[in-house]
Simulated scan of single mutants.
Amino acid sequence: MSEQPSEQPPDRRARRAARRAARWKQRSAALAGSARGLPEQVPLVGRALRQLLRVNLLDCATRLAAQAFLSALPALFVVAVVTPAAVRDGLVHSLRKELGLQGEAAQSVQQLLGTGHTDDAGFGAIGALMTLLSATALSRAMQRVCERCWELPKSGTRVAAWRWLVWLMVWLVCLVCQTPVRDGFGLGAWLGVPLTFLMATALWWWTQHLLLGGRVRWLPLLPGALLCGVAVVGIGVASRVYLPSAMSRSIGQFGPYGVVFTALSWLIVVFSGVTLAIALGRVVAEEEAVAGLLGSRTEPGRWGGARF
């Protein structure tokens, strides 16, 4: 008797491989079709995707992080130098907690913020004023993000100039007070987390209304503010777990420049969360069920450019 071949002929193996590839191709095409049809099946998802593509999330977050690092942080140092020791200590503590600064990095920041120049008070006042004015670049960038999310034209300089400085000063004050709030004024995270959420929600609600010049009423801005509160709490919890080790590794690899790299990366994450929250907040505010409660309905057939 002739023995059966132990291996299949090459042509049979090729046909089986071709059929297997065809089945995988059909499955992939079906999944792709389902993904393309998802925005039509779930309108909220479609509007959210269009909003994120139009806002350009990463570009906005990178611009905000760069402005915060190049203009707002120097203003923070200047404020710490010219303010009383209690304010300076609170600011150092906040930066150390937020950025996960330890060891040499924390000591460097302490020395930097504790170095004042009182020999020439006139020059110090002028320098502080110019630094604060230049720091309004962050306010302007934040205003452009809010306007892009709500598809509103750019505000005039006369209308917006004072808002930039007010927004910056309020956020500097909040940063000084942030650490006690996060710690629940010594009572722990069970109180600190809700307080942080409420403070962040209130601040971002006010931020949108201020920088948009009142062109959008308060209630339609509430979903974005609530999402900002969630983003701030989530990023804050994650930063306390991740940042100290990341900062230590970065300093070990790059020396003092490691603080720069890690801080800038952290700012990009923070502003990505904030931009995402504001952009999606508008989408939620225009949902049929929510729009009736908030009074944020737009004109029929238009998704943007209407008065809210």
Results as ranks from 00 to 15, higher is better:
A65V: 01
A80F: 03
G213V: 13
P9N: 07
A161Q: 05
L195C: 08
V241S: 13
G213R: 13
A29Y: 06
A30D: 13
V260A: 10
R20S: 10
A279T: 12
L52E: 06
L243Y: 04
P300F: 07
R307T: 15
A137V: 07
A21F: 02
P300R: 08
L129M: 04
I235R: 04
Q111E: 10
E299N: 14
Y242T: 09
G252E: 04
Q208K: 07
L52H: 10
A289M: 05
V145T: 15
A277W: 03
M247N: 07
A32T: 14
L165S: 05
A225N: 06
R15S: 13
G46W: 08
V45C: 12
L57K: 13
L172I: 11
Q8I: 09
G236E: 08
W205E: 01
A106P: 05
K25C: 11
R215L: 10
F69E: 01
G214T: 03
D89S: 05
A30H: 14
C60H: 05
R182H: 09
P43N: 14
K154M: 04
V81R: 07
L191N: 02
E3A: 00
S239V: 06
E151I: 07
L221P: 01
M130F: 14
S155M: 10
R144D: 12
G224H: 03
W164N: 05
A125V: 11
A277L: 06
C149H: 10
R23N: 08
Q4R: 10
L58A: 15
L198E: 07
L57V: 15
K25Q: 11
A61V: 08
L91S: 00
V274G: 05
F261W: 12
L187W: 11
G103F: 02
L91H: 00
S296G: 10
R23F: 09
L195E: 12
L187K: 11
L187Y: 13
V173K: 11
D119K: 00
T136N: 01
A85S: 06
W171I: 03
A279P: 06
L264H: 04
P194W: 12
G116Y: 03
T196M: 06
T131M: 14
V270E: 02
D11H: 09
Y257P: 02
F77V: 00
V176K: 03
R16N: 13
P194E: 10
P153A: 09
E3F: 00
G258D: 07
K154G: 04
G156Q: 10
A160I: 15
T62I: 14
A14E: 13
V166F: 12
M169G: 02
Q178S: 13
V233M: 09
L44Y: 15
P74S: 09
Q208C: 11
T115E: 06
V237A: 13
S265Q: 08
W150H: 15
L264Q: 05
L243P: 04
A35Y: 15
A14R: 12
V181T: 12
